[in-house]
Computed example of a mutant assay.
Amino acid sequence: MSDTNTLVLNHKQILQKITRIAYEIYERNISAEAVVFAGISGMGNLFASLLADSLREISPLKVELLEVMLDKTAVVQGEVILSEDIDLKDKCLIIVDDVLNTGKTLAYALKPFLEIPINKMEIAVLVNRSHKLFPVTPDYTGFELSTTLSEHIEVDLSKDQYTVHLH
């Protein structure tokens, strides 16, 4: 693994990506009763919160937010839990994560929704690395980045200066 630490997206660029994705979500779901963002634990949940805030600013849509809690290091063995029980009838569900690597985490994150009648389900990611091993394709992507599997993407949305770095 390389010792380099390359800034891929700065704070301003990330905010622009969030705004663009929010507009895309609004355009595709203008007639929905509501949009429910389901953020995957960690940065995925923070990204979902930022998307929800942005969508609320630009649209009259009802926006709801929940967290998909799972252990990203052991998705096969671990349990997938939703932060709250939510009615998804006639709503668009958007599963959100910060980085799409192989699709494994997102595939397992779908588990709690498989037994719920959902009108429409979409996927939003900030960075798509395109190392597709699972049949998961994002509907909304902030940034496409071709990397090797040995490289690591670090997303930080936890403070006032959001960043995406490549290590």
Rank of each mutant, 00 (worst) to 15 (best):
D3R: 11
T4F: 09
T6C: 05
T6D: 08
L7Q: 07
V8D: 05
L9D: 05
I21T: 02
A22T: 02
Y23S: 03
I25C: 00
Y26N: 12
N29V: 02
V35G: 01
F37W: 08
F37A: 04
G39Q: 04
I40N: 03
S54K: 11
L55S: 04
R56S: 15
R56T: 15
I58W: 09
S59A: 14
P60G: 07
L66P: 08
E67N: 12
M69Q: 15
G78S: 09
G78K: 04
I81T: 13
I81R: 14
D85S: 11
D87C: 08
L88S: 13
K89R: 15
C92T: 15
V99D: 09
T105I: 10
Y108V: 01
L114H: 02
I116Q: 15
K120M: 14
E122T: 00
I123H: 11
V125H: 03
V125D: 05
V127A: 04
R129G: 02
L133W: 02
F134P: 01
F134G: 00
V136T: 07
P138R: 04
D139E: 09
L145Q: 12
S146P: 02
T148W: 02
L149A: 06
D156R: 07
D160P: 01
D160V: 02
Q161R: 09
T163A: 14
V164L: 08
H165Y: 14
